[in-house]
Deep mutational scan, measured.
Amino acid sequence: MTEYKLVVVGAGGVGKSALTIQLIQNHFVDEYDPTIEDSYRKQVVIDGETCLLDILDTAGQEEYSAMRDQYMRTGEGFLCVFAINNTKSFEDIHHYREQIKRVKDSEDVPMVLVGNKCDLPSRTVDTKQAQDLARSYGIPFIETSAKTRQGVDDAFYTLVREIRKHKEKMSKDGKKKKKKSKTKCVIM
Rank of each mutant, 00 (worst) to 15 (best):
E98P: 01
D108G: 07
F82W: 07
P121Y: 12
V103Y: 15
E98D: 08
I100T: 01
N86E: 10
V81Q: 04
A83M: 03
E107C: 12
N86K: 04
V112A: 01
T74R: 09
C118W: 09
S89G: 05
E91V: 11
I84F: 13
T74N: 13
N116H: 15
D119T: 03
P121L: 11
V109D: 01
V125Y: 10
G77C: 12
R73Y: 06
P110A: 04
E107G: 09
V112H: 04
G115V: 11
T124N: 14
R123V: 12
L120H: 07
V109Y: 11
R73N: 06
N86C: 04
G75Q: 06
V103P: 04
I93F: 08
V81H: 02
K117F: 15
Y71V: 12
D105R: 10
E63W: 03
I100C: 02
D105S: 04
E63L: 03
V103W: 14
S65D: 12
E76K: 09
S89W: 04
Y64A: 15
K104V: 09
H94Y: 05
A83R: 05
H95T: 04
S106T: 09
D92R: 03
M67Y: 05
M111S: 01
P121E: 14
N86Y: 06
R97T: 13
S65V: 07
L79M: 09
S122N: 10
Q70F: 03
S65W: 07
C118T: 09
M111H: 00
L113Q: 00
I100N: 05
P110H: 04
G75N: 07
P121R: 10
I84C: 15
C118H: 06
G77Y: 06
D119S: 04
V109M: 06
Y64E: 15
C80K: 02
S106C: 14
N86H: 11
L113F: 13
S122I: 10
S106L: 13
T87V: 09
K101E: 07
R123W: 10
D69W: 01
N86P: 00
T74Q: 14
R102T: 07
K117Q: 12
K117P: 00
K101G: 05
E107Q: 11
D119C: 05
S89V: 07
M111R: 00
E98S: 06
S65I: 07
P110V: 03
I93L: 08
S89C: 03
R73D: 12
G115C: 09
T124I: 09
N116K: 01
T124E: 14
M111V: 06
A66C: 08
E107Y: 11
G75Y: 14
E98K: 07
Q99W: 15
E98I: 03
K117Y: 15
S122L: 08
T124R: 09
S122C: 10
D69H: 04
E63M: 03
E98R: 02
P110G: 01
E76T: 13
E63R: 06
R97M: 15
S89I: 09
L120F: 12
D119A: 01
Y71C: 08
F78P: 00
L113N: 00
R97F: 15
D69S: 06
S89A: 08
Q70N: 10
V114N: 00
D108A: 05
V114A: 03
Q99T: 09
D126H: 08
E76I: 14
V81M: 13
T124M: 12
Y96A: 04
R68S: 12
R102E: 09
C80S: 02
V103S: 07
H95A: 05
R123Q: 12
T74A: 13
D126I: 07
R123L: 11
L113G: 03
R102V: 05
D119I: 01
K117L: 15
P121D: 13
K104L: 12
L79E: 00
R73S: 12
N86S: 12
C118A: 10
F78E: 00
E76A: 13
V81G: 02
F82D: 00
R102A: 07
N116V: 15
G115N: 04
E63N: 04
V109F: 11
V103D: 08
N116A: 15
E76L: 14
L113D: 00
F90A: 05
R68I: 04
A83Y: 01
I84T: 15
R73G: 12
Y71N: 13
P110E: 03
D69Y: 03
Y71R: 09
M72G: 10
P110K: 03
C80F: 14
N86Q: 04
F78S: 02
L79N: 00
T124P: 12
P121N: 10
R123T: 13
D108I: 05
D92W: 04
F82L: 08
D108N: 10
L120D: 06
H94D: 14
K88T: 07
S65L: 05
V114C: 07
S122R: 09
N116E: 04
K104Q: 10
K104R: 14
R102F: 08
S89E: 04
V114Q: 01
E107A: 12
Y71I: 14
R97C: 15
E63K: 07
A66P: 13
L113P: 02
Y96W: 14
P121V: 09
P121H: 08
D108M: 06
G75D: 04
Y96K: 05
S106I: 11
K117D: 09
I84P: 15
I100V: 04
R73Q: 12
E107V: 12
C80L: 14
L120S: 12
G77A: 13
K104C: 11
E63I: 04
R97G: 04
V103A: 09
F78C: 04
L79P: 03
N116L: 15
M67I: 10
M111Y: 02
A83V: 03
M72F: 12
V125Q: 11
Q99I: 06
D105Q: 15
S106M: 09
M111A: 01
I100D: 00
I100R: 01
A83Q: 12
D69K: 05
T124V: 11
V103R: 04
G77F: 14
E76F: 12
K88A: 10
I100A: 03
G75V: 15
F90C: 06
E76C: 15
V125L: 13
K117R: 11
K88Y: 08
Q99D: 00
S65T: 08
D92S: 03
L120C: 12
D126V: 08
M67L: 11
M111E: 01
C118Q: 08
D69G: 05
Q99L: 14
Q70Y: 04
F82H: 08
E98T: 06
